[in-house]
Design a binder for these strands. Structure first.
Length: 199
DNA sequence: TCCACGATCGGCT
DNA sequence: GCCGATCGTGGAG
């Protein structure tokens, strides 16, 4: 399966956020890989008070200012990582947060990754809870600060075409967990998917 | 140097 | 529905 090219990621951010639905996210670890279909995304734009890039370039948000097709992984709440796909042009500072995926390959590894702390075990009793949230996705797919700034046009972490999601299957809503620009409808998910973080 | 806060999650009421 | 965990970041002073 062919990797998505740079030209996919350098489109307008809101376009990429919608088009990412149905795409396959793949992380190759040694000879194995973990993969899943993206079912929920959120866009963060350059003039967006909810975006990490809003106050300009800093050490933390540097990858957001790369050209489209890089990964931006950040650490939050003292314990979680979240992964974004950088979009649009170099120097702008836009990205799409991956909020949920439907597991495809490497389910065993996903379960292991999500069970590393026994205290979390009870929360993973239902399969959909493995990857229905941005920090759950990052943990399930072993995405940490090591992967911050990685190029998705290389061979370790990349996306493939997956399935086409018609626009009638895309639900558009406000974003979750933010305190600014709460009125912007920049969250997208696949209607009827059991794997989204919240209806 | 200090310190408030966060694109979350899981457990508890 | 609410709350605590836990720490890197960056704005303030």
């Amino acid at each position: 399966m062919q990797k998505l090219p740079r030209s996919f990621y350098t489109q307008r951010t809101l376009t990429v956020a919608k088009e990412l639905l149905g795409k396959i996210f793949i992380h190759k670890i040694g000879r194995r890989s973990i993969s899943g279909m993206i079912v929920e995304t959120e866009a963060y734009l350059f003039n967006d008070p909810a975006s990490h890039s809003f106050r300009g370039l800093t050490e933390r948000n540097r990858p957001m200012f790369y050209t489209g097709g890089f990964l931006y992984v950040y650490f939050t709440y003292g314990m979680h990582y979240c992964a974004n796909i950088v979009t649009f042009k170099e120097g702008i500072g836009e990205a799409v947060l991956i909020r949920a995926v439907e597991p495809i390959d490497g389910i065993g590894a996903i379960i292991t990754n999500r069970h590393t702390d026994v205290r979390h075990f009870k929360g993973v009793r239902h399969l959909h809870s493995l990857t229905n949230g941005p920090a759950k996705f990052a943990e399930a797919f072993s995405l940490t600060k090591e992967h911050n700034g990685i190029d998705l046009c290389e061979d370790e972490i990349f996306l493939t075409k997956g399935k086409n999601v018609s626009s009638s299957k895309i639900v558009t809503t406000t974003r979750i967990g933010i305190s600014a620009a709460t009125e912007k409808k920049w969250r997208f998910y696949i209607k009827d998917s059991a794997w989204v973080s919240k209806k």
